[in-house]
């Protein structure tokens, strides 16, 4: 479905879209709306887990339970900063493609991906240096479940960005008019980011 000349690649791509969305391509593109619905569902998964955390927090006499080793705040704090910053970096990528600047898109998206990768590496580093394991106590379990599930989402986001970067190498694939992949991956990344901020507050700070 990719092809060397701008013209052809557009028509071919158009055809794929037409098949995917409407036989006549006559209605507007609803994929972003669909993604928003999907992210609503995703938020409810996180909400379920956060609720579990909060219930335990309020039901148990001490939180974290007696004897839980203190969480180191320094590294996760930096990590949080990086992830939050990456959202802004990524947004510049979208701004670039709105100006039809594919190189700019690639630069900013690559930077976002790098920051996401650093975040994941930091997360793994933290895992290996923690003094508790998954089964140590309920706090530890929920800590790993939440950060792990979130990490999975970061990973998916990275794959998503990688996908956009790959596609952007086909000339004319993304233009100022047509860049659903860019918008979608950015929306997804912001979502992952916001979830992390809530997670950070609930798990690390409170």
């Amino acid at each position: 479905m990719q092809s060397p000349t701008v013209n052809e690649s557009q028509t071919v791509h158009h055809e794929v879209e037409v098949q995917a969305h409407s036989p006549h391509g006559s209605h507007p593109d609803h994929r972003l709306f669909g993604l928003v619905l999907f992210l609503t569902a995703e938020s409810m998964i996180f909400l379920g887990m956060f609720a579990t955390l909060l219930i335990y927090r309020f039901v148990l006499p001490a939180w974290p339970p007696e004897g839980t080793p203190e969480l180191e705040l320094f590294l996760p704090g930096i990590n949080t900063g990086i992830l939050v910053a990456s959202s802004f970096v990524m947004h510049r990528g979208q701004a670039a493609i709105k100006r039809n600047d594919v190189a700019g898109l690639q630069r900013w998206f690559a930077a976002t991906a790098a920051m996401g990768a650093i975040f994941l590496a930091g997360q793994l580093y933290e895992y290996f240096h923690l003094e508790f394991g998954v089964t140590t106590n309920i706090f530890a379990s929920i800590f790993y479940a939440l950060t792990g599930f979130h990490g999975l989402h970061v990973t998916l986001g990275l794959i998503f960005i990688g996908f956009v970067l790959m596609r952007s190498r086909n000339r004319g694939h993304y233009t100022s008019e047509k860049h659903f992949g860019v918008e979608a991956s950015e929306l997804y990344w912001h979502f992952v980011d916001v979830v992390w901020v809530i997670l950070f507050i609930l798990v690390y700070l409170l």
């Binding site: 409810m44 379920g48 579990t52 479940a145």
Partner: peptide
């Protein structure tokens, strides 16, 4: 859309 994901959360924890 609103309820099924919450079950998923519970089942994921149950599988842990």
């Amino acid at each position: 859309l609103l309820a099924t994901p919450v079950l998923a959360a519970g089942l994921i924890l149950l599988s842990f």
